[in-house]
Amino acid sequence: MNLVARSIDAPRFASLADFGGNNWNLDAVQAPDVWARGFTGQGVTVAVIDSGVDITHPDLRDNIWINLDEIAGDGVDNDVNGYIDDINGWNFGIGQNNANVSPGTNNSGQEHGTHVAGTIAARNNGSGNTGVAPDAKIMALRLGDVADGWFVNGGSLPEAIRYAVDNGARVINLSLGSADSPQLQSALAYAASRNVVTVSASGNEGLLSPGAPARYATQYGLSVGAVNRERSVARFSNRAGGSPRLRHVVAPGVQIYSTLPGNSYGFLSGTSMATPHVAGTVALMLSANPTLTHNQVRQILTDTAVG
C-alpha cells in the first residue's frame, strides 16, 4: 500500500498474492501488503458513530475500546467526562442517553454499525471476515434506534464527535448522513484541530456531490464514495462534485462481507460500507506513523488513492 509506505517515507511495499473471494475488498485496498510489514492498526482507536456495535461478537470482542478510567456498573462518573459507566462508548439516542452501545432492536437497519465495525477491525483469526486494521480498537458510539434505514430517535452527532475526540479516538467513521448545522461544522473543526480524522460516506443518492457530513471534506476529514469489484464507481454512490478542495476518495462498497449482530456475517452495499475501508486504512497509516497530522493524512490519501 503506497500511502502507508509514504507515511513513513519508505519505498512502495511489495504486493502479495490476492486473497480473492469474499476478501476482494482487502485486496483492493492492499491491506495484506501492510500487515506483512507489521502495521495492523495497533495503538489506534477508531470511533464508529452508528447504530450500535455487537461488542460480544467473536470477531470484534477483543478489539472493543475499553475506558480504563471508568468502573463498570458503579453508577459513578469516575473519569468526570460527563458520562456514567461509559466503558465501551455511549448511546446518544434521544430518550436513552446511556452506556448501552449494542444494537437496540431487531430491525435489519440496526445491524449497520456492527457491519461497519467488522470492516474496520474484525480480528484476523481465520474465521468470518478480517478488518482492514485487525488490531485497531473500536469505540462504539450509538446514535439511537434504526427503522427502515433511519434513526427514529437520533441523538446529537456533534456531541458524539466531540465525545470521540475527547476520549482518545484518532479516527471517526461516519457511515451516515446528517443535516447541515453550525454545530456539526464546529464539531468537525474541533476534531481536525485535535488531529482526529473524520471519514464520511458521500451518500447513496447517485448525486454529483456528497451530502453532509462528507461535504465538509473541503476543510475537514475525508469524503468516501463506493466502487465495485471492477473498481467502477457504484451507480448509487454520490460523486465528488466540482470543488477542487474536496478531499474525496473511493473504496469497495458493493457486496461487502462483514460482521453482523448475533455472531453472524453477511453482505451489505453502500457508501457506508466503503467508508470503513478508508477509516481502517487511516488506522494503518497512524499505526505506522502516529505523528501524522490531520492535514498530512488527507494529503497522502488523496495524492496516492487508486481508482
Rank of each mutant, 00 (worst) to 15 (best):
S193H: 06
A36W: 05
L60E: 02
V254P: 10
Q30Y: 09
V224W: 11
T281A: 09
Q219T: 10
L16Q: 12
V165N: 11
L141K: 15
S102D: 15
Q96T: 08
S186G: 09
T275Y: 07
A10F: 10
H57V: 11
Q96G: 02
I172E: 01
N98I: 03
G253D: 04
L60V: 11
D79Q: 10
I71M: 06
R298M: 15
N98M: 00
R37S: 13
R298W: 13
I256F: 15
E159Q: 14
H57K: 04
D148P: 02
N91K: 00
F267M: 05
S178I: 01
L286A: 14
A36F: 05
F92E: 15
G75H: 03
G144H: 01
L3M: 14
S51V: 06
V116R: 00
T119Q: 07
D180S: 07
A36Q: 15
R12M: 14
L208A: 07
N81I: 13
N23M: 14
G211E: 00
L268T: 00
G241W: 03
D18I: 01
A192V: 07
I64L: 08
I87P: 03
T130N: 06
D86M: 08
A36K: 08
W150S: 06
V278S: 14
P290W: 00
R194E: 02
N263E: 11
V227G: 01
T56D: 14
S272K: 08
G126D: 07
M1L: 10
L157F: 14
G266A: 09
S156P: 06
Q110D: 09
W24F: 08
N88Q: 05
N81Y: 12
A189V: 05
N78C: 12
A201V: 05
I84K: 03
D50Y: 11
A133Q: 09
N91F: 00
V282S: 07
G307Q: 02
G221A: 06
N22M: 05
L286C: 12
L157Y: 09
Q183W: 01
A10R: 13
L301Q: 12
I84M: 06
Q110R: 00
A47M: 12
V249G: 11
F236M: 03
